[in-house]
Design a protein around this nucleic acid. Sequence first.
DNA 1: ACAAATTTAGACAGCCTTGTCCAAATCGTC
DNA 2: GACGATTTGGACAAGGCTGTCTAAATTTGT
Lengths: 229, 229
Amino acid sequence: MRLGVSPDTFPPRGHEAKRLSIVDAAAGVFCREGFAGANIDLIAAEAGVSRQTVYNHHGDKEKLFIAVVRDLTERCNAGIFATIATFPDQPGNIEADLIGFAVRLNQNCICNRDGKFLRKLIQTEGERYPELFAEWREQGPGRTWPALAARFARLAYGGYLVIEDPDVAARQFLGLVNAELQTTFMLGGTPSESEVVQSATNGVRTFLRAFGKRPAPAGVKKQATLANA
Amino acid sequence: MRLGVSPDTFPPRGHEAKRLSIVDAAAGVFCREGFAGANIDLIAAEAGVSRQTVYNHHGDKEKLFIAVVRDLTERCNAGIFATIATFPDQPGNIEADLIGFAVRLNQNCICNRDGKFLRKLIQTEGERYPELFAEWREQGPGRTWPALAARFARLAYGGYLVIEDPDVAARQFLGLVNAELQTTFMLGGTPSESEVVQSATNGVRTFLRAFGKRPAPAGVKKQATLANA
DNA sequence: ACAAATTTAGACAGCCTTGTCCAAATCGTC
DNA sequence: GACGATTTGGACAAGGCTGTCTAAATTTGT
């Protein structure tokens, strides 16, 4: 829709550019101050436009807020699907490949600007706009989680993992690779890259202890290969 | 301090009662509306007192907010420690016992009113009061996570689990048993009891696949006992 | 029942915010 | 260079909120 083809009856190119910069600035201010605390003058200033222009483009504060959430949802979803497309379907080294995937997911979708903002807006104002966030839920987790589960199912079918319920496994994968980042997320912080890698590494190792095929067929002491840390 | 002994020079009994009802009402309003959107008149109305009484007790809006967060932190911490005290140190049936513990933790500390409110306030306003929430971090996760890790270490020492790093295991335990509740939490909802049990059951099963001692000493097909769901 | 402390209701000033209006300035295009 | 659309800045009304003040009503302890 946004990336559609040449709407030739388009107003000046700067028009759309301003719309974008307003939505961007608004996202930041809504996140920092909350809906009630967000100040249109401040949004206009941060967007580098006049207050009147904000009203020209978006009508009122509530419509602007809705535009912000829709924009973020759209961008985040695109990012998540692009990242899921890099899922290792035929891993050479399943541990390393899953860790790489988890790190990409975190860095490109969860810890980046859009991801942080969308998450915070959902947490903060989710109850105020039930239908808007129901829409997010359908378009977001409702579509991305099954997509991820399908990838894990394929990995199981290929003999790389032993999984009964791919949906549960997918959710637990996310829970595990983010287990060490919860406190940072809570406070709105951005984990350092090494924290992300650390959490992903620990998470994937545990995930594979639960769902991975045992490397040694039989006889060998089972935990010995892992427990020598 | 609050639970100290007999402050005999205490004003009327209703004084402290009113203070409590104000803080309680304020917690609800701050959560629903955010700090900026919270209305002192509304808080007073919900607390069943006059606006002036709110100011008499707490000075101004910011002090009231701080009192709310401190109160919630204190109560939640108490609840978490009380629940950790029920950790199964010598489990008869480790799966059932850990599931029970996870359910208690969720119901008594995370899904209850105080837990929901504290979580939302931290997410919403954490960046606005760095020192206040740093305090929460020290008193909360900083104390409860190690306490939980110590219990898991004891379980490993007792031969019930195989764990290298108890801190990591504790965080992953929490991540796993809450894996299926994330979306609900995001939107501020309260999961039903069956959802909590379901998530805890799946989480504990996976946790034990990763860290549990294999039930059959040797020879038997390893996943067979678990994979027949 | 009395005295002290607390609570209440209402009014009030000061401030901030939203959303509108308008004339002048600017921009993009032909 | 000229024209039309867009943007700008400033003024403006209407409304909401915080925090203070006061005198009257109520509660509490003795």
